Amino acid sequence: MLTTRQGIRPLGPADLDAFLRLVALDPVVNVFADYRARTTSLEPRWLGGEMWGRYAEGELVAACHVGANLVPIGADEDDARAFGERALTRGRTVSTIVGPQDAVRSLWHTVAGVWGRPRDVRWNQPHMQLDGEPLVEADPHVRRTTRADLAEVYPACVAMYTEEVGVSPEHGGGAELYRARVLQLMSRGWSFARFDESGRLIFKAEVACASPHAAQIQGVYVVPDLRGRGLASAGMAAVAQIVRREIAPVVSLYVNDWNTPARRAYERVGFVESARFSTVMF
């Protein structure tokens, strides 16, 4: 039902074309929303939540993904406040608020007094992208992983997630669901790794989501004892080449501003900052 005061209503399959026009205004930043729309046709039962749209003079001007993540899309600060006010009517059901910095900040300030203290807040996360050839030589040993690699890939995914987020993805009985996600990425050809001569995984990265316009990388990880040796730069150069050749023309990611080694590695590869993201985690 349309909320007249805010011009917000849940979107559905009939709104798909309008939604794709909205995300196409910034297709690299909006790759997650674009991917979700194309894979679900905005059907709530496939989304596992809702996609809200905000209208002005009959035109879709902003949206917000409401599932495990609350993600503002094409939203200015006023749009984000409106989405936050709507979110307050249903209580907190999300584990993160993530997206462009100004919109996330406005949305969070709207709900903060009710939703309580977050587990972590990361206000400054450079969003970086690469739309050409890498500036460093790609590691020729990086390859797609398969189910046969699971014994090495899965522990590395858990280690990376725990190091990045501060809590294990297996916490609270989440191991089965997380393992299924790792296998899903493998089956799509979205999981990449390098293994040493003994078969030990020493570098990995995954594609989190992709559209015809862009692919977003997640889970970049180098084993601790081999960090500082250029594995991340060479590995990411290899991943970027494969992704640009076979999945999408632009490769993107976002990184914590305090993670200087990672930022330098991406810059060496040729990634440039194109936006700022923020993440609020519960």
Rank of each mutant, 00 (worst) to 15 (best):
T3H: 15
T3Y: 10
T4M: 11
G7I: 01
P10W: 04
P10F: 07
G12S: 13
G12R: 13
A18Y: 02
L20C: 09
V23L: 03
L25S: 13
L25N: 06
P27Q: 08
N30S: 07
N30H: 15
V31G: 00
F32N: 06
F32Q: 08
A33V: 04
A33D: 13
D34R: 01
R38C: 06
T39W: 02
R45C: 01
M51K: 00
M51R: 00
M51I: 14
G53C: 06
G58Q: 13
A62G: 11
A62D: 14
A63F: 02
A68I: 12
A68H: 11
L70T: 04
A75R: 11
D76A: 01
D78M: 03
A80F: 14
G84E: 05
G84H: 04
A87E: 08
A87S: 13
A87H: 03
L88M: 05
G91D: 10
R92M: 15
T93R: 13
V98P: 00
V98E: 13
V98W: 07
P100N: 03
Q101H: 10
Q101N: 08
S106D: 12
H109P: 01
V111F: 14
V111E: 10
G113E: 11
W115M: 02
W115H: 09
R117F: 07
R122Y: 04
R122P: 00
P126I: 11
P126Q: 03
L130S: 06
D131T: 07
G132S: 13
G132P: 02
P134A: 08
L135M: 11
V136H: 09
E137F: 00
A138L: 03
P140M: 04
R143V: 14
T145V: 14
T146V: 12
R147Q: 12
A148H: 10
D149I: 05
D149E: 07
L150T: 01
L150K: 10
C157R: 13
E164Y: 13
V165G: 01
G166W: 13
E170P: 00
G172V: 02
G172R: 04
G174M: 04
E176L: 03
L177M: 05
R181L: 12
V182M: 01
Q184I: 00
R188C: 05
R188T: 02
A193W: 10
R194Y: 04
F195D: 06
D196T: 04
E197P: 00
E197H: 12
S198P: 00
G199M: 09
R200T: 14
L201A: 06
I202E: 14
I202A: 02
I202L: 12
V207H: 09
A208H: 08
C209Y: 10
A210D: 09
P212M: 11
Q216V: 10
V220M: 09
Y221D: 02
V223T: 15
P224K: 11
R227Y: 10
L231N: 06
A232V: 10
A234W: 09
A234Y: 06
G235L: 09
M236T: 05
I242S: 07
I242G: 01
V243Q: 10
E246S: 15
A248H: 11
V250S: 01
N256D: 15
D257I: 14
W258Q: 05
N259A: 09
R268A: 15
V269I: 10
V269C: 04
V269T: 12
G270W: 01
F271K: 03
M281L: 14
M281D: 04
F282R: 09
F282L: 06
